[in-house]
């Protein structure tokens, strides 16, 4: 732990619909975002842990940034309970229907607005978009080196050492800062909320004026983003067509209540298991 200066740590989080809950599902299978149960994107929990770990191990301040409609403040409060120092919510109706490129642009402007940083942590991807694109697109805008699929890291002096997952192995990386890191879910899971954080959030919720100082809400004008590059207008991709995918399977051949050996004989006979056996 030879690291010299305290670090300015940014972590990006997103509020996503809870796909595990049936509430807020339209008959056609799409999500009604207004009715759906909301949650912190599960991938972001690892990014949050990485940011809080960095602060604990090397010192510094954690800024949690999110983009979304006003209820997204909930995930910033959750991050405060876990121990981040401040939150910034970018919220603006003109951001509606932004694709990943437009989102990365808006976040890029927000990050510049938030000031100096050494490290930016993002989740690997979101559960509502599944693209894993916003992190690297943001790094491109900010002209930063990046480590995607990062499963472990440490700071040594002014360098970051990181382990990155690749197909059938890993890469050991050494990089300068500032850097953007997307954290894989093989990194340490998020620890429990801190008593201090929970207490702080409870207190802030009773003192809205102080809450506003800890969680700032900004719009496109505040961060100096060009509205033409945001929302539908700033998005080079559109969803031209969707179709519902039929339930897969649906007519499972069940074996139940018979002798174990009979059930196994049946399943081996009826299914195509034999085709894949090792021929000695």
């Amino acid at each position: 732990m030879s690291s010299s200066n305290p670090k300015d740590i940014f972590v990006l989080v997103k509020q996503v619909p809870d796909q595990g809950s049936k509430a807020g599902l339209n008959p056609d299978g799409t999500i009604d975002r207004a009715r759906a149960k909301r949650m912190l994107n599960p991938f972001d929990r690892y990014a949050l842990q990485a940011a809080l770990h960095t602060k604990k191990a090397y010192g510094g301040r954690v800024t949690c940034i999110s983009m979304g409609p006003p209820p997204a403040v909930e995930v910033l409060l959750e991050a405060l309970e876990h121990g981040v120092d401040r939150g910034v919510l970018l919220s603006d109706k003109r951001l509606a229907a932004s694709d990943t490129l437009a989102t990365a642009y808006a976040l890029y402007k927000t990050i510049l607005y938030c000031g100096h940083f050494d490290l930016i942590f993002c989740g690997l991807q979101t559960t509502d978009g599944d693209t894993a694109q916003v992190g690297p697109q943001l790094a491109e805008r900010l002209n930063l080196p990046q480590v995607t699929y990062c499963e472990d890291f440490s700071l040594e002096g002014d360098k970051v050492k990181a382990r990155r997952i690749i197909e059938g192995g890993c890469q050991h990386i050494i990089s300068d800062m500032p850097i953007l890191i997307t954290v894989a879910n093989s990194y340490h899971p998020l620890e429990y909320k801190s008593f201090r954080g929970t207490w702080k959030v409870q207190w802030l919720q009773r003192h809205p004026e102080d809450l506003k100082k800890v969680i700032t809400t900004v719009d496109l004008d505040t961060v100096g983003a060009d509205p033409e590059k945001c929302g539908l207008k700033g998005s080079p991709t559109i969803v031209a067509h969707t179709e519902k995918v039929g339930e897969i399977g649906g007519n499972c051949k069940m074996f139940e209540g018979q002798a174990i050996s009979d059930m196994v004989v049946n399943i081996i006979e009826k299914s195509n298991v034999k085709e894949y056996l090792k021929i000695s």
Partner: peptide, 8 residues
Amino acid sequence: KFAHYGIV
């Protein structure tokens, strides 16, 4: 509900 073969 979506497996092709099931053993309970």
